[in-house]
Every structure is written in C-alpha cells, then in structure tokens.
Deep mutational scan, measured.
Amino acid sequence: GDWICPDKKCGNVNFARRTSCNRCG
C-alpha cells in the first residue's frame, strides 16, 4: 500500500508505486 517517507523532515505519504520518497530534501 501507500507508505510514508522515513525522513522526519518530509513525512509525506507516497503512492505504493513509488520506489523512493516524493519531494524529499
């Protein structure tokens, strides 16, 4: 399913099809 970026500065939910965090950094 969808997953949350492990980066504390991010924390946005990513679609399951993504293999990396979206809009992190």
Rank of each mutant, 00 (worst) to 15 (best):
T19V: 08
F15N: 15
D7R: 08
I4F: 07
P6K: 12
P6S: 12
C10S: 05
G11N: 01
V13D: 05
D7F: 07
C24K: 01
C10N: 01
N22D: 15
W3C: 07
S20Y: 09
V13A: 10
R23Q: 12
K8I: 12
P6G: 07
R18I: 15
N22G: 14
C21E: 03
C10L: 01
D2M: 10
F15P: 12
R17W: 10
G1W: 01
C24D: 02
N12A: 09
R23E: 09
R18M: 15
V13K: 13
N12L: 05
K9W: 04
N22T: 13
S20W: 05
V13S: 09
W3P: 04
C21Y: 00
N14S: 04
F15A: 13
N12F: 10
D7A: 06
C24H: 05
P6H: 08
G1L: 08
D7P: 02
K8V: 04
R23H: 14
R18S: 14
I4V: 14
F15S: 14
I4Q: 08
G11M: 11
R18K: 12
G25D: 08
N22Y: 06
K9R: 10
D2R: 03
N12V: 04
C10G: 04
N22V: 13
R17T: 15
T19K: 10
A16S: 14
T19Y: 07
D7T: 02
R18D: 15
N14Q: 04
C24Y: 00
C10R: 02
G25W: 03
C5E: 02
P6N: 11
R17K: 15
I4R: 06
V13W: 07
N12R: 07
R18C: 12
C24Q: 01
T19S: 11
D2Q: 05
C10H: 03
P6D: 14
D7S: 05
D7M: 04
K9P: 07
G11L: 11
N14Y: 02
P6Q: 14
G25N: 08
G1D: 08
D2Y: 02
T19R: 06
P6R: 07
C24S: 03
N12W: 02
W3V: 00
C10W: 00
N14I: 02
V13L: 06
N12Q: 06
K9L: 08
R18F: 14
C24G: 02
K8T: 11
S20N: 13
A16M: 12
N14F: 01
C5F: 00
N14H: 02
G25M: 06
R23V: 12
R18Y: 13
C10D: 06
N14A: 02
G11R: 12
F15Y: 15
R23P: 03
N22R: 13
W3R: 06
D7E: 10
G11W: 06
I4G: 04
N22S: 14
T19I: 09
K8Q: 06
C5L: 01
D2K: 03
R23I: 15
N14V: 03
S20Q: 09
F15W: 08
K9C: 05
D7C: 01
A16C: 03
C5H: 00
R18P: 09
I4A: 09
N14E: 05
V13P: 15
C5A: 01
N22W: 11
I4S: 05
A16T: 11
A16E: 13
C21L: 01
R23S: 11
R23F: 10
C21N: 01
G11Y: 07
C5I: 03
W3K: 04
N14D: 05
P6M: 13
C10V: 03
P6E: 13
W3F: 08
K9A: 13
